[in-house]
Amino acid sequence: MKRPPFSNGHLLVFLAFVLHFLLNLQNVNAQTEIPVSDAVKQYFEDRKNPTTQNMFSVKPTLLINGELPVFYERNIANSLGLEIGAGLLLPYYLPGVYELVGAFGSNNEIGDRSDELKVGTTYWLSAKHYLAGEAPDGIYYGFSYRRRNYNLLDARILVSEITVNFGWNQVLNNQIVVGYMTGIGSRWQKSKSKSTSVKEDLDGSGVAIHLNLSVGWLF
């Protein structure tokens, strides 16, 4: 019998996390801003103005997984950043790394059928709360939804993940952003295939773990 993607315990922890995130978000929005007088306004105008802060980034570590997305992040408040990502799943993988990561129960979604892989697609959606209120700079926590569509010769696998994340972005030279992120959550996968045995073989769920390095460009 297949395990459900979330146990009740996991679900409660995740919901508590999301609730905490949303409450913090409410606090961020509830803060009243003291207006800046014209006499000193110019001294506070820097690149970290939340209305103009955008970032494109890539996560080179995802290449190990054969995943090549590009990310766009925009801060919608001082402390809050929303990130979307989209890209390709390349038809290759590194077995050794899979075995290593597989020890944590993750990334074994294509099993031993990697030689049947064709190009797929990947999508990310993340929300981040920056503790210092200078998004996208500094330490943050948040959650993300990630969906990958693997195309095999005779099947299609849809892998979904929800993770809670912790990370640290460092703005260098006011333009380049180097980030480190780790996350843990649940992963579940469903396959679409005419063959029932293939479905039996590929459907399942497990733990999702993220360990990523990112490089971004502010504009």
């Binding site: 000193v40 001294y43 506070f44 105008e45 820097d46 690149r47 970290k48 703005v171 006011n174």
Partner: peptide, 13 residues
């Protein structure tokens, strides 16, 4: 004080 990274200045108010 406020550090303005764009101006590369630390201002005192």
């Amino acid at each position: 004080s406020f550090i303005n990274q764009k101006h590369q200045k630390k201002y005192l108010f």
